[in-house]
């Protein structure tokens, strides 16, 4: 921070405190804020996603399909490559696929298919990519993806067709459950560099409110739920 912005910082905080008639050191205010940050109380959580796990997986599928994702269940991780190959073939897409270094994806039997795999981030030349989701949210059919070499963020946005694998056990009812899982993995108050909450394929309504898919991000979002 340069000197000029540190003067601005002091001025802005000073103005806020003058307007609020506070000093910033009042014990009750400081403790209310510290408490809220430490306890992160939850707001109202819609009943829609508060179901048993099997029903949450069903709701996740319904909601994701409602916002134009395609969703398929497979019994085990062994079945994923065949499902991906089928999806690409039936959509008349080339049999290519880019992925990060996620060990869960790497362990799948890709050699059983004719897919040409490449690894790493996208530079914009890839038509198809596959990622492994961190979690799913039944309430809105949303996927949560976390950045890293395992699942590079560029794969979520540059390719035309994005395939996302999610373990059924990682599907939760609501956003709050995803925050709880992130805190378990990262520690309270810590975050991965990027968390992408993705709800359907890219879209735009900027021309005469006509809803069009594939604005800048993927035109197709295909979700593969692994049941085992």
């Amino acid at each position: 921070m340069s000197t000029s912005t540190s003067t601005s910082r002091a001025d802005i905080l000073g103005n806020i405190r003058r307007s609020l008639h506070v000093t910033g050191t009042e014990r009750p205010r400081v403790s209310v804020v510290a408490e809220r940050l430490a306890q992160s109380p939850q707001g109202p959580i819609p009943a829609r996603g508060q179901l048993d796990h099997e029903a949450q997986v069903e709701l996740f599928k319904q909601e994701a399909e409602r916002i134009f994702a395609s969703v398929v269940d497979v019994a085990s991780v062994q079945d994923v490559p065949a499902e991906v190959a089928r999806f690409l073939r039936e959509a008349n897409l080339p049999a290519t696929l880019r992925m990060g270094s996620d060990p869960r994806l790497a362990a799948m039997p890709w050699t059983d298919t004719a897919l040409a795999l490449t690894q790493g981030r996208s530079d914009g030349d890839d038509l198809n990519a596959i990622s492994h989701a961190f979690a799913g949210i039944a309430e809105t059919g949303t996927l949560a993806l976390v950045s890293g070499a395992d699942n590079p963020t560029t794969l979520n946005f540059l390719p035309d067709n994005h395939i996302v694998v999610i373990a059924a056990k990682d599907i939760t009812g609501d956003l709050e459950s995803v925050w709880a899982r992130l805190r378990t993995f990262q520690g309270k108050g810590e975050m991965p560099r990027t968390v992408n909450l993705i709800t359907g394929p890219s879209r735009s309504g900027d021309i005469e409110q006509t809803m069009l898919l594939g604005a800048h991000g993927p035109r197709r979002l295909h979700i593969v739920i692994v049941r085992d």
Binding site: T142, G148, T194, I198, T199
Partner: peptide
């Protein structure tokens, strides 16, 4: 119900990021 992309960003590229 949710916009398509809700993106949470915390700091720059981390060790190991590509």
């Amino acid at each position: 119900d949710m916009s398509v992309y809700t993106t949470l960003s915390t700091g720059p590229r981390r060790a190991g990021d590509v």
